[in-house]
Design a binder for these strands. Structure first.
Lengths: 213, 213
DNA sequence: CTAAAAAGTAACCAGATGGTTACTTTTTGG
DNA sequence: CCAAAAAGTAACCATCTGGTTACTTTTTAG
């Protein structure tokens, strides 16, 4: 029966996402996934072959969620590039907060030298978010609102770093800055600071001649 | 014999650092550490009690290396806060590049919810680097080179994010921006962009009223 | 030189691991 | 209704896990 198998598959994937995102590939236990999903272990192997395949399926399904972001960002369209960038940051921050398993899976992948990330076509999803930012920059440049010297790749790296790192390293950062970064207030302040900084950077033309590189 | 035991201890720690930083707490195998260090497994337990203690010792020893940074940063003293900040970024970037095991251990810790980070007095080492940056900001404010509105905590978060994330997420970022971030050129460009951005942010007074937060 | 303490070792253990097999139950198409 | 295909299950296996024990060798101090 199709429906039943679909449900079983979904149950396995859901439990596997929990387990893999919590403990990573090595730490995850198939027995645990079987127990949590209430699905017999042999069935997991029938559906997904082996542990590695299951992990890759989880990775793919988690990354899929990024795709929705592009439409969200484009939907929040506005003539002012400042507000577009501001909206972009809001949406990305919100996504990271709402998808802790995404954050963790990306971390695991990097610790695994992006082994599975590269193996599958996972990185295809990158386009969605990259293109959205690129478009903002291109439009702003075209209408001469920001100088051509602004490097959209550096902008992207900064934006990802400031957003992603806030969540990925929250536990150690909390200790470092001695503030509860999980609180709504901390997050609001952080988002504002990131926005201010990026806009200041773009206003300055993306480079600062007073600082020799 | 003291010397011999010291050597053995060091061999175990060295192999354990490799193993733990590569595979994390769960993935690391005591058998592997024993094999690599050429030290009998039972001896490892005699020296370190259990796997958890050994992990914590590795964590502590890796964090110790941060302490050297403070003196380096202070040594690179200069009257201009811009050059101080510039030097700070150079030194921190260099540290992260030279200490991949540090980067990985911090990542593992965050995935483990900073369990061992909090358990030990590991976070004491934070002071060294935090204080160095704080001092730069305080001095610059005192001499009215930057406005009081600049928030040193946000500055710290940004600096750590931009530096740390570049190395921690290098594998996935490489796919995303389609550039070999491991190359010297990429790194130089990145450092310059980070410096420019932070200085632009500080010049702007640390906030941007044109962007409602 | 010697006895005690420290350093080091081989072999072992119970439990858990990923993965399989032989089997029963349920669903489906004709 | 019925046979074949799909879904699901219990019990099992070889291997590996962290950790221990009973033992020998080396070093040290008097």
């Amino acid at each position: 029966m199709q429906q039943r198998s679909e449900i079983t598959r979904a149950k396995i994937l859901s439990a596997a996402e929990q387990e893999f995102s919590e403990k990573g590939f090595y730490g995850a236990r198939i027995n645990e996934i079987a127990e949590v999903s209430q699905v017999n272990k042999a069935l997991i192997y029938k559906y997904f072959g082996d542990k590695e395949e299951l992990y890759q399926c989880v990775l793919l399904s988690v990354y899929e969620r990024l795709k929705d972001l592009e439409s969200q960002i484009i939907a929040s369209s506005n003539s002012d590039y400042r507000q577009k960038l501001s909206g972009f940051i809001d949406i990305y921050f919100q996504f990271l907060e709402d998808n802790p398993t995404y954050v963790r899976m990306v971390m695991w992948e990097n610790l695994n030298h992006a082994k599975y990330f590269k193996a599958r076509q996972v990185n295809k999803t990158k386009d969605s978010i990259i293109k959205a930012l690129d478009q903002i920059v291109i439009e702003a440049k075209a209408s001469h609102r920001i100088p051509d010297s602004v490097d959209s790749k550096q902008l992207m790296l900064t934006l990802i770093a400031c957003s992603f790192n806030y969540f990925s390293n929250m536990d150690t950062l909390t200790e470092i800055v001695q503030a509860d970064l999980r609180s709504e207030e901390s997050q609001r302040k952080r988002i504002k600071a990131v926005k201010d900084m990026l806009l200041a950077y773009m206003d300055s033309g993306g480079c600062d001649d007073r600082c020799e590189g």
